[in-house]
Nucleic acid binder design. Structure first.
Lengths: 377, 377
DNA sequence: TTTTAGCACTCTCCTAATCAAAGTGCTAAA
DNA sequence: TTTAGCACTTTGATTAGGAGAGTGCTAAAA
């Protein structure tokens, strides 16, 4: 990162701050009058010109005030903003809501995306925890009418996946129960990724008389594990984007909306992007444990994505973990001109909260320890 | 319904037709030139004036062409449009998709809303089947970690509801299994509404030794039935509304969006409205069995809802049935100026398709008959 | 050498003015 | 009862002008 002279930095910061608040291009006079730098507009003009030359600022037309470029935003986010741990007013009520009312993972994630939207006044999104990283709590096979059975799969984090399967003949309850028991004994505590591997290997090592069950298990679970690979995205509050003056041009708004609703494009890009961050995180983790909470929050500004539709937007994301493994992402999407300090704080807060709820012993009381000891090395 | 003179009706129809296509106010000259009525613009002007006086037309300013009022739209929809059974191009592929790939109710409904949006080019929505009308297939209790159990509830239509429940102590598997069996024996084939009633009554009549199980059942199912009362709404394709010229005014669009995303208001109104239609349907059913398919499609135009945000929109809805009981609604939401004949056709087609998939023996093969005989009179 | 004051210049935004186009309502003729 | 003719109204697009805001440059001041 280039080391700008201190005064220049100060001016850049002021400009960003002001521009984010007002949305209007900022002129030299405005800066001189409203912030007490002891400098005349002319001096500030010179400074502006330099900053523009270096690529931090631009002006929309020959003689308007300056607005930051993406590079300017980036510098601001990386080195100029003071991280302020904002106090979320309703913190207590929110925690309460989580612990009391929300049991199912779907509900938790849904509420979380809603919450992100409400606290940020922008759009909130949550990726469901990575399916394959989830640790199996139990499998259950139950008869479900003629030639049908219902397979439910419960993970430690409270995620339930189910599937209705066909079989060419009825399997009696007793055998289904036996099947459930065997699988639970063998695989409880394994991650689902391990499960889908093992289910194809382990067969050979088992006693002959169980082999029939394994064939069944292979068939049933194979279907379920295979079909359930995709992860859900919870997205809420896109309507908040409507109020933003940067989208008063209808075309832009429309493009953005269509683009976002086509979840696959943007979010899968984001996921890939974040996965690489996660790797970096891991290696850094030992070194700088102090600033961790905010280090794992990632800000992506406008053209840092390859998508033209996102050119006026920024995304603040955070990883959330389960069993000390990063398993999912959540964050907010808003205009580039957003209040980054607050947003970073909100995302960070929520992400920690989700982690607590998902694994911190608050959600499945007393479970987490036991489960971890179960977990094979 | 007032009986307008035939020529007037013809002109009204032409105007509607033209206006819906172009979105521009229609003038007398346009009508005279493009449709051959053998009438001069002046005559048509006179006719317009009469129609306006009667409330079917209006003009946005002193001297533009005419546009229909809501009353005009209503007359058009009720008596002027010819119902045309449009051929959905991909009909075969769509059926295939339903029967092959979609097993879980959630997936079906989700796909349906997507399909409605795609075929209509507007927004599509689906109400999940009324919870209490669903017929129980089976209940299953499974242990789910320390002091927890997983209750799953499967209905004949393939709807699965589940809940993770706390209990102050562990209940061993054997007892849970016994509980499941008892409940299945007693309640399989009953609707969930009946179930939630019976579960509170039946206790007394049973043998003493089962009473403990009933207490458990009451507690567990009570929680599940109570908490799961709300129905889901699947909504897709709101972005299609963006292209509509009537919403080029950003404020309107924004209002509509916020209003619709606040699902409760509009959709709960719609539900109430439709429920009353359903009652009327029932009594008419015996009489006019012929035109039935389209009779159960309902069009709601702009100000026929009490919501100002909906003033430029229309909704085409259809009831869908299970076991000959209306259980849910689906439809599309678009601008008032929509191609009603096609839309009615699309909604009608999809609603029949959904019925087939949900109950017609295609979804749970061979189940429906047996289940119905199980069903207590 | 750095900062400041002064001034000409540029560009946007707002308003008013003008003009063609579209369509009506009315009157009188067919 | 229908039609032709014509004056009238309103919109929308275009143009022009002027105020406002802010810059860049130059020369003076610190």
């Amino acid at each position: 990162m280039v080391n700008l002279k201190e005064r220049k930095e100060k001016i850049l910061q002021i400009l960003l701050h002001h521009y984010i608040r007002t949305g209007q291009p900022v002129g030299s006079k405005t800066v001189a009058e409203n912030y007490d730098l002891g400098l005349s507009p002319a001096t500030i003009r010179n400074c502006f010109a330099e900053l523009e030359e270096e690529g931090y600022l631009t002006h929309p037309y020959t003689s308007a005030g300056r607005i930051p470029t993406d590079k300017g935003y980036r510098f601001y986010v990386d080195s100029l903003i003071e991280i302020q741990q904002i106090v979320v007013k309703e913190e207590e009520r929110i925690r309460h809501e989580y612990y009391l009312r929300l049991k199912r993972l779907e509900d938790i994630l849904n509420y979380t995306s809603y919450l992100l939207a409400r606290l940020s006044h922008y759009a909130g999104f949550v990726f469901s925890p990575k399916w394959e990283r989830n640790v199996l709590q139990s499998v259950n096979f139950a008869p479900a009418g003629e030639n049908k059975l219902l397979v439910t799969l419960l993970t430690k984090s409270g995620l339930v996946k189910y599937s209705l399967l066909d079989n060419e003949r009825n399997i009696d309850e007793e055998r289904l129960r036996r099947l459930s028991r065997i699988l639970n004994r063998m695989f409880s505590g394994f991650s689902l990724a391990e499960l889908s591997e093992k289910i194809y290997q382990e067969i050979d090592r088992e006693e002959k008389k169980e082999i029939e069950y394994f064939k069944l298990a292979k068939r049933f679970l194979g279907q379920l594990l295979f079909s359930e690979g995709k992860e859900d995205i919870y997205l809420e509050g896109m309507n908040n984007i409507f109020n933003m003056p940067e989208f008063k041009d209808n075309k832009k708004l429309s493009d953005l909306f269509k683009f976002i609703e086509e979840k696959k494009f943007f979010f899968s890009w984001l996921k890939k992007e974040l996965n690489s961050i996660v790797k970096k995180m891991k290696s850094e983790k030992e070194l700088t444990n102090s600033n961790w909470i905010n280090k794992r929050v990632k800000v992506t500004i406008g053209s840092e994505t390859p998508f033209p539709e996102m050119r006026d937007c920024s995304v603040v994301t955070s990883v959330y973990e389960m069993d000390e493994q990063p398993v999912g992402f959540l964050g907010i999407l808003g205009p580039k001109r957003m209040e980054y300090p607050q947003m970073i704080s909100v995302v960070s807060f929520i992400s920690q909260l989700v982690e607590n709820v998902l694994q911190g012993g608050n959600y499945l009381k007393g479970e987490s320890k036991k489960s971890r000891s179960n977990h094979p090395k």
